[in-house]
Amino acid sequence: MNAERRHVLKALAACAALAPLRAAAQGFAGLGAEAGGFAPVLPSTRLVFPADHGPHPDFRIEWWYVTAVLTGTEGAEAGVQWTLFRISLAPPGEGGSGWQARQLWMAHAGLTTAESHHHHQLYARAGVGQAGVTADPLHAFIDDWQLVETAAPASGAPASALGPLRMAARGGDFAYDLALTTERGVALQGIDGYSVKSERGQASHYYSQPFFEVSGWIAPGGQRRAVTGRAWMDREWSSQPLDADQSGWDWFSLHLPGDEKLMVYRLRHDTGPAYVTGNWIAPDGSSTRLDPGAVEVDALGEAEVAGRRLPVRWRIAIPARGLEIETAPLNPQSWMATDFAYWEGPVRATGTHPARGYLEMTGY
């Protein structure tokens, strides 16, 4: 696609989708807005693979989201993010095809080192072949950004397992190209993939693949470096994932010792206490929900970021698991200055369970 056409598409997408969401904003990016006409998230739904690696157009929003914590051959740490969002502009059955399709694709990529943070954003309209997702084999793309299976899963692997993936993206001052591999199946978040977001019952369908091993290269500022590490993929879809008075979230994904994994999120209400929950994932992929009240998440220290004060250092405690850790960012200035801006970057945890992982903070 030439630059002029890309510019026009981005402008149309921003005007048609993002401005109305802002005008009626409820929660971060309008995700607490009423979702009449879209499919509901039901606790009785059971996820089915490989189909659920693909899109769910009856729901209003979903994402394919990967973060990776990396180490270069010289020992320097880094992190990358790759996210593709599908956003329905109208309930199922409304809209047309081609340029009139009512599905919008938006993508974010980030690359963070201790010295720099890089990010880029893309848009596409569904129906014209510029972006999309297929489930089997998994192929998520927008322009030349790719998250694609390069081979079939290993023989005998679980039905939810993905074959080797290639993940690539580039922006004006950065690029990366990584290989992700695992033979393990996914971990279901919440209870059997039904993830509750508030006391009033807002929820999503949510699963993760937190067991990827990674190799490849990154190029912050155009300087290519070989890296290895671990990656975590999240898949989530919903029609109203937030309550109307939830302004945003603080979300952690952590690679713990012994190949255990921890996902924790803190959804902030405009009034009243935050809703805090998560899942503890065993090395075999079995996932146990952490009920509200079982997890303590407290801000410890702030930094000036993009003209605002943000809590970049945190304490997480799960007394029943004997866990008490403190997280610190690799780079406090990991601000994603996209149309819906947020903080996203790699963190390191110290304490009872030393760990590396990612923190995302929205709505600040």
Rank of each mutant, 00 (worst) to 15 (best):
A3G: 03
S116A: 15
A337D: 15
V48K: 02
A39G: 04
Q26P: 08
A306W: 09
A154E: 14
L31D: 01
V214Q: 09
T67A: 10
F38T: 02
W217H: 11
A109S: 11
G95Y: 09
Q103G: 09
V8Y: 11
A203L: 07
G301V: 01
L138P: 13
L21Q: 11
A35E: 02
W280F: 14
A179Q: 13
D136E: 15
P319T: 07
H353V: 07
V8A: 07
Q103S: 10
P220G: 01
D136P: 08
P319D: 04
L256Q: 03
A219C: 08
A341Y: 01
A320E: 12
A16T: 14
Y265R: 00
A29V: 11
G171W: 10
E213F: 10
L12P: 01
D243M: 04
L162C: 08
A151L: 09
R230E: 09
A179D: 14
R266G: 03
S286K: 07
G172P: 10
A303W: 02
E4T: 12
Y265F: 12
F212D: 02
S286C: 08
Q81Y: 05
R356Y: 15
A124H: 01
A203E: 07
A3S: 15
S208H: 08
Y342W: 13
R315C: 11
W232V: 06
E326P: 05
M336R: 04
W251G: 01
D136W: 12
T228V: 15
E34T: 12
G216W: 06
H118E: 06
G98S: 10
W237N: 03
V347Q: 07
H269P: 00
R348H: 14
L310G: 01
V41E: 06
L104E: 04
L262D: 06
Q202R: 11
R102H: 04
A154V: 15
M263R: 00
R356W: 15
G172W: 06
H205R: 14
Q246P: 10
R356K: 12
Y123A: 02
V133K: 02
R308P: 05
A274G: 05
A231M: 08
G171I: 07
A24V: 09
P346M: 07
H269G: 01
A23Q: 15
M233A: 13
R125I: 14
W217Q: 04
E324G: 04
P20G: 04
E115N: 03
Q240H: 03
A25Q: 15
A349P: 12
K261W: 15
G95R: 05
H118S: 01
A17I: 13
A114S: 12
R308S: 11
A13K: 00
G357D: 03
A25Y: 02
G30E: 03
H53N: 09
F49Y: 14
A68T: 07
A90H: 05
E344R: 00
P273H: 10
R22V: 14
G221C: 05
A169W: 04
A109P: 12
E213M: 03
G93Q: 10
G258P: 10
T67H: 06
E34M: 00
H56A: 11
